[in-house]
Design a protein around this nucleic acid. Sequence first.
DNA 1: GGGGAATCCCC
DNA 2: GGGGATTCCCC
Lengths: 477, 477
Amino acid sequence: MNMNQYYDLDNGKNVMFMNDASSTSGYSSSTSPNSTNRSFSPAHSPKTMELQTDFANLNLPGGNSPHQPPMANSPYQNQLLNNGGICQLGATNLINSTGVSFGVANVTSFGNMYMDHQYFVPAPATVPPSQNFGYHQNGLASDGDIKHVPQLRIVEQPVEKFRFRYKSEMHGTHGSLNGANSKRTPKTFPEVTLCNYDGPAVIRCSLFQTNLDSPHSHQLVVRKDDRDVCDPHDLHVSKERGYVAQFINMGIIHTAKKYIFEELCKKKQDRLVFQMNRRELSHKQLQELHQETEREAKDMNLNQVRLCFEAFKIEDNGAWVPLAPPVYSNAINNRKSAQTGELRIVRLSKPTGGVMGNDELILLVEKVSKKNIKVRFFEEDEDGETVWEAYAKFRESDVHHQYAIVCQTPPYKDKDVDREVNVYIELIRPSDDERSFPALPFRYKPRSVIVSRKRRRTGSSANSSSSGTESSNTWMP
Amino acid sequence: MNMNQYYDLDNGKNVMFMNDASSTSGYSSSTSPNSTNRSFSPAHSPKTMELQTDFANLNLPGGNSPHQPPMANSPYQNQLLNNGGICQLGATNLINSTGVSFGVANVTSFGNMYMDHQYFVPAPATVPPSQNFGYHQNGLASDGDIKHVPQLRIVEQPVEKFRFRYKSEMHGTHGSLNGANSKRTPKTFPEVTLCNYDGPAVIRCSLFQTNLDSPHSHQLVVRKDDRDVCDPHDLHVSKERGYVAQFINMGIIHTAKKYIFEELCKKKQDRLVFQMNRRELSHKQLQELHQETEREAKDMNLNQVRLCFEAFKIEDNGAWVPLAPPVYSNAINNRKSAQTGELRIVRLSKPTGGVMGNDELILLVEKVSKKNIKVRFFEEDEDGETVWEAYAKFRESDVHHQYAIVCQTPPYKDKDVDREVNVYIELIRPSDDERSFPALPFRYKPRSVIVSRKRRRTGSSANSSSSGTESSNTWMP
DNA sequence: GGGGAATCCCC
DNA sequence: GGGGATTCCCC
């Protein structure tokens, strides 16, 4: 029996509570003694045991948390409701909403407009309620009949790439999940707005798989009071507070393989219990859940997640009722993985090669997978149109420990050019068609026989001092 | 209470025994219920628990093993005595010993002689006892007085580099610890001979630290009957069997960091108990042992070990009495570590550079540590004498993820040479002065101004078609 | 924020 | 036998 506390952001003070439940998984925050999660608990290494204590301390017993549905086994009873607190900007009034419809083409550009102009307005202003939140549905032609249906819109997507951290890495600070348009200043964060609704509501953010409408085993955490609180994260919105929910200071914890099934099962079960608003699942339901979890866990993409946003109203009896269909963010890719990380050419062994190609070229690159990488040469005209492309030649064994590629340059399309040709080199990862950026410049040099012929004809010297190199001499057709 | 069995190589059959002791560490083979080791046991992850079961099954209860001293807590009561078994060549009769002293200068050459001529002799021959084992002491001048003292000699050193494997890697087969002179055929193995003794004896091999005469926390294992048996390993030798002990099929298990202290403590304690031939250690002794272990564990080199060979005779009362001072093998280095692994240049971005130096050169290399690596250029004369050396210039940040080095070539000593100069490039690891092998050839090219001067003077064309390159032209002093 | 060491997995 | 993925640690 331990005394624990949590910081109640609604009331702005610490709340003490008793806790005698043992945590079962590294991330579990369920404390119900009859939790069905218990049966999945694996043994833990000493280090893991230590760490999970951190999470266990976050547990809140049912009944202590305000505004929660009365479910003893609710997965969310232990979760902090954040509204206007220090760590998370719970509800920023949408000053930008002047009552006129923006009629913007898509969420992203709306997000940009919003941020560009109004993002740092400090305090909630008092906007006439009647003017607020008359949003159109994305300017689609068919939106007439759903014009006044409550709807969630993403106004700021999360960044596309982010390093997922293991639990063991969650000591220090490592930077949080910013918005796609975040800069040093202003920083942005994933952000949604609830449209066409004017009562109090809760906006929830949780981590989902990208291939299924199902939770992801990884954890979306928020650092709060020296603790990492797991998803889902709820923010209160209302007429007074505004209907924008900005999710600040989140991180993504990479669930270790041995816990994937367990964590996924727990999350799926929690959602099911919540949706059905009942205490326990039937044996049959549990069995199906297990089977489904097994299938999903087997080929879940561990290096890609997305955010799921949901909106609920809380009935007088405490029940949470969905207000709008969930919306999903763009994919967030694990920056650390060779399968999803940033592609980058750090250096070329030389900036030029002959038009005949087959020059050996070494590229120093950031981590790549030898089975999933190509080296593309391409030429653009003045308008940026691609007028030529070709791929360098190399085998898997020419990829040196993921960090260097030894390749042969492809021949240029025209072996008889009489001047240097400026082209570019980029990496391509076929699996997701990712490119390195920026493309690096490379110059094709004409054959020396062509250069001297031109010289004889025109009487001019080559316009490049370095034309007609040794190697060019050897590329006689 | 489980039934277990081990294969008794002395009797050539499986022996059943009861086992109700739980194993404490990943490698522990001690089963005594009052073992003091118990207090160090850490919790284990599920995976670890599984694996240690493998080891636990090897436990032999005291009293079941023949030829062992009567110590309930003996660390070696659970160890297989190997003589003439399938996996380990327990005792090869030393046919080569004709009774005359070889008087060889060192153990290694003796080892070579032995192997070259006699290694594959199939069956033990019956050599007149009186003629056997009259070895000299390494041919030292001062060896007269110890000529007939029993002595261990290493006749085949272990290989210098070997990949240490984690316990989790011990499924498949990964090649065993061969002798320094091992080839595809003939393979050799670490091997010692006991000289100046003609009774039955046991030769023991165990893993030691290189900086101290103390055991290493890593495990020297022998695969036997689908199990990895930990060190020490004992082989029986005698007049009939010969006095050569060849340790076949050994591997080195890299103890995970969290078990270093525990494993080291156990090994040290086992040795102490064995040496003192008593059941338990006093409280004071245990305390000292702990402190000493703590000190040793703190800065033990985890990437370097050596073999310790010892010889014992077994008294009629079962006591083991040392016959000769222990001898230690050369260091065995972990091939997988950047600190001790093989240095190798896989490729150069170009084979030539100008005499003025400062040409950018990329080396693709096997794993190096950026804080512990140098690139040495050197020139040898016809006799192989080094006539010039210099180091390439680069910063730590020029080492690309341990696998490539971007450096500037050093200037050649003579900026006015009028012909190409052939030199070599090698990597050097300062910490252990290790070199890459073989050194790669590199050619310095004369400045073009020198070449044309020579041409004018001598009327001859440069003897290299590629002298006077573009870049050479730019190295004007 | 990132590089690399330690550990584990698999071709 | 070896490369690389996974997990962890630390500058």
